[in-house]
Design a protein around this nucleic acid. Structure first.
Lengths: 233, 233
DNA sequence: AAAGATAATATGTACGTACATAATATTTCT
DNA sequence: AGAAATATTATGTACGTACATATTATCTTT
């Protein structure tokens, strides 16, 4: 660290992270305040602020006005999971993407969907199931309910050509969403669609999205055996 | 929007997001440059910059110098997954945490662990298996390998009292890590430990962490049936 | 001593200016 | 025309100042 040359917020970020890693600053420790650090490292407070803000959002630091900045006592790892459109995920693996609509029906939703989206049992909804394939093999089975009130134009979409997954991303951006990851044993019907055996362990992703407080869609995405979702920290 | 009162970066963030949601700015569209937006919204460029930077990191915008800022053509949802220490995850659910060491052995690692961590087959490692319980019921089975070269002090840790999971978080902060999520059928042994039936679908989290380029630990975390990992977007 | 009001303080953020950097557009040269 | 050099431009970031805000510490009152 040379106090003459200009410091970038990234170099401050790295230097603070180094001190945490080398345990110069241990979990729970109060670290110097921004002005002091700025002086130490030869940069402006704004630069230190940017670096510390970033580190806090990464879970390494806890910051509170007046109380100061501490090394996180129980570092919570914040994994960033990229959830692209299925087509891009498959193409990103270098595989050929294909898609097939299984069925599409306009009807009222079952209780669990009402509960997820916070809508009434009489809601006008579209129920769609489809299969996404990678190199011709079943990759993911999608079982989705879409609120027609929230996105009426979905009735005009040609869901034989574009998947509901992709159509929604392009035409119904949302403000809020929930995802649940879990593991389930394949039912007989699911096993048949995904060309595997009943009871096989499958990776399940359940997504619900809202715009403000109106539910848009709730989907159950069931992945073929062997699927692994990766995340770097 | 009042051009007289001061704009916060959050209000700019929300306004831009609103324009994306209402499709005033569609996926792929070039949006006004920072100076123009600042003028429009009555704030400084730095404020607009902060808001747009945030939106880009959230996956809503693509930004490139000179080329300008565009609405992301294929919005990649970036889910933030908090991965706390198991004890805190269980206590956060309002359940009582307990932990039992199953066995701990110092030996050379099998091939797959060598591959994960990038170490040789002759490495000096600690192999630990343990069970984490919530309200007395099996919650997660942990099968972990720790490099003794990277963290020699783990030999002094009393792993009957503190889990390797927690000890490592407190004593061996890392710089880089990988996580894989998947679903597997329980083996006979795994089923017995988790008190369930063989073949039951289980949620699996595989974690490997490095400090710089030396592998620290590789763990296989197998959750009891019914486990769901949540994430808000 | 307990409660309430007040002061002190570290972080949070806005602004304007200045310059850096990367990518594109234009001009010049061959 | 094609390649190379140059200018242009939008974002990226650093700085110093100013003030806001949340929280803690201190003082005052009862």
């Amino acid at each position: 660290m040379n106090s003459l040359e200009q410091q970038s917020w990234q170099s401050v970020h790295d230097e603070v992270l180094r001190r945490i890693h080398t345990r110069e600053w241990k979990p729970g420790d109060l670290i110097p305040k921004e002005v002091e650090l700025a002086e130490q490292l030869g940069c402006a407070r704004a630069t230190v602020n940017r670096a510390l803000r970033e580190l806090a959002s990464e879970g390494f630091l806890d910051r509170r006005r007046k109380a100061g900045t501490r090394v996180a006592a129980h570092p919570v790892r914040r994994a960033k999971l990229d959830i692209p459109v299925i087509r891009l995920e498959i193409e990103g693996r270098g595989q050929k993407y294909a898609y097939g609509l299984l069925f599409s029906e306009r009807r009222t939703p079952p209780p669990e969907i009402c509960a997820n989206l916070g809508v009434t049992a009489e809601s006008d909804m579209l129920h769609i199931t489809s299969l996404h394939l990678a190199d011709g093999k079943p990759f993911m089975f999608e079982d989705r309910w879409v609120s027609i009130a929230a996105t009426p134009t979905i009735l005009d979409a040609d869901l034989e050509k574009i998947s509901a997954n992709e159509w929604l991303v392009l035409h119904a951006p949302y403000t809020r969403g929930d995802i649940y990851f879990s593991a389930v044993n394949a039912s007989a019907a699911e096993a048949k669609v995904l060309r595997t055996d009943p009871g096989t362990s499958l990776f399940l992703m359940e997504r619900t999205t809202w715009e403000n407080n109106t539910g848009i869609t709730s989907a159950r995405l069931l992945f073929a055996p062997g699927y692994r979702k990766h995340s770097a920290i």
